[in-house]
Every structure is written in C-alpha cells, then in structure tokens.
Design a binder for these strands. Structure first.
Length: 273
DNA sequence: AGTATCTCCTGCGTGC
DNA sequence: TGCACGCAGGAGATAC
C-alpha cells in the first residue's frame, strides 16, 4: 500500500526515465478507476512533453506544459518503467501505458482500482483534490506550532487527526501507528489536549519515520526498470503496525490492537500514554 | 466546522 | 480442493 515514502520512491524511480520525453501514445485498457479516465485524455496529452515529475502528498504529478497528469496509486497501485516496452507482456490489472517517443513505457498497474489518472489544465493548486491539502510533512511548514494550533478544540483521536490530509499529507495508517509509538503517545488521546511539547516530539517522529522510509525505499529500489515495479514496502522494520498481540520492542508487554476510525491501530499501553 | 459512517475494489488468509 | 467469508485501506461523499 503506497504511502508517501513509496510514492516519493516511485517519483524518484521514474523521473530519470520520463522527464523531458515526449508522449507518443496513451493506451488505456481500463478506464474505471476511482474516477473514470476521461475519454479525452489521449488527445489531451499525446504528442506533448513531460517537463517534470513532481509529487504533492501521495499524488504524483507529471507536469506537461502548464497542465498536469495527476496519478494516485490508491491502495494497490504501482508504476514501472519498461525500456523498449511496447511489446512487453501484459499482466492482469495493467490498466494504462504511457508510451514515450523512445518506446519507453510507463505502465500503471492497480488491482483494486482505488487510484486515479486525471488531467488538470492549469495550475495544480487549483485542482480540488490538491487545493485543500495540508502541508508536506517533510517541509518546514509542517511544524509543532502549526499542528498544535490547528488541533485546539479537536476531540478526534490524535491518530485520526494526523491521518487527515487537510492537517498534513502523506501520513497513512502504517506510519501514523509507527510515529505515535516513537513519540510515546497513545493513539486515542484527544488531539486538542496534547501539549505543544508533545506535538514537538510527534512532528519530529513523523518526519524521521517518513525520511527513513524514503531512504530505505531509495536503496531498495536501485533499479526501477524491468523490476516488478514494487518499491520496498515494509522494508523498514515495523515497531507496532501488524504486530498486535506480539511483544513491544521496548518493554516486551503484548501490543494492544484496537480500531480507530475503521482503521487497525496497534500500540503499547505501557510505552504510549 | 467537526465527526462518524459508508463507499469504491481485488487479493489473501482463515475456517469449514 | 474449494468455497464463503472477513479483512486490508486512501480518501472522497454523505449525513448528521
């Protein structure tokens, strides 16, 4: 499940293979993604050049002139680069091929079809999916002060709060669980009641856990081409996620698993208060 | 405005 | 071996 580190790893992986290249053809085999792929998309982007590969939250942005191709990998999506790939064998759920002028193929694969491929004509910040997003977690705009002031009056659990993309982008379930463990904060604690000092620790832990995952992803994904396109998900050793009932790595007490906002939540009742 | 619930979808693990 | 089932989850849509 691509979280921000996997999306950034994907961005870095595909960038050298697609940046500055011209789109020869767009081949869509399945238009029914999170939102249907527009029937006009082919004519909108064929023949145009990809000027840059950017990212906002978990959205990948292929900048094409003054517009953007917005790609989200959803829960199960991946992109891979296939050099000279116009005749490469298709796997099930290979929904879209972006065929570049040098016959490199950027192939979008997404079994659960929770992702999307959308066109935005004009400034990316004007797109409804992008306009309401909170700050990037690895930027200076994501700070303890900002988080603390935004949280005042909020009764939602801190875990739900940091997973809200209007508050901060890119903190999915896995990293929310992990960051709260490192910060020693009980995921159920009301967001509005956490002190500035605890937010300082939490923002630091979120930044560290994401930065570390990007580093690991980057090393796992040396060769983005020709591989199965799966970045190094779960490459880092997880402290709590998926370990309900198993011993805490700090105190050995069994980790507790609960549901918070329909999401599996794992924490240590001793280490996280 | 904030919060909770529902929804999309397929693959996988589990229990019979 | 096969089937039914529950679960996984990003994030928008919807209903309070």
């Amino acid at each position: 499940m691509p979280e921000l580190p996997e999306v950034e790893t994907t961005r870095r992986g595909i960038e050298p293979h697609v940046e500055g290249k011209r789109i020869a053809r767009l081949v869509v085999r399945e238009r029914r993604l999170r939102w249907p792929i527009s029937a006009a998309l082919e004519s909108l982007i064929e023949g145009r050049e990809i000027d840059a590969v950017e990212r906002r939250g978990k959205y990948l942005l292929l900048r094409i002139g003054s517009g953007n191709l917005i790609i989200h990998l959803g829960m199960s999506g991946s992109l891979r680069v296939i050099p000279d790939g116009t005749t490469a064998a298709l796997k099930r759920h290979d929904h879209v091929d972006l065929v570049l002028a040098d016959n490199t193929v950027l192939r979008y694969h997404d079994p659960r079809r929770f992702g999307c491929v959308l066109w935005q004509d004009g400034p990316i910040d004007a797109h409804p999916l992008i306009a309401s997003l909170g700050p990037e977690p690895l930027s200076a705009a994501f700070s303890a002060q900002q988080l603390h002031s935004r949280s005042r009056g909020r009764k939602a659990p801190i875990k739900t709060f940091i997973m809200d993309s209007k508050v901060v982008v890119g903190v999915g379930n896995i990293y929310a669980n992990e960051a709260l463990f490192f910060a020693g904060i009980n995921p159920q604690r009301a967001a509005g009641k956490l002190s500035l000092a605890r937010y300082a620790l939490l923002t630091d832990c979120i930044k560290r856990v994401l930065a570390r995952a990007i580093e690991v992803g980057g090393t796992t994904l040396r060769d983005f081409t020709g591989s199965d396109g799966q970045p190094g998900y779960f490459a880092q050793s997880l402290q709590v996620y998926g370990r309900g009932g198993e011993p805490c790595k700090q105190c050995a007490k069994p980790l507790k698993e609960i549901r918070l906002g329909q999401r599996s939540t794992v924490y240590c009742t001793a280490c996280q208060r």
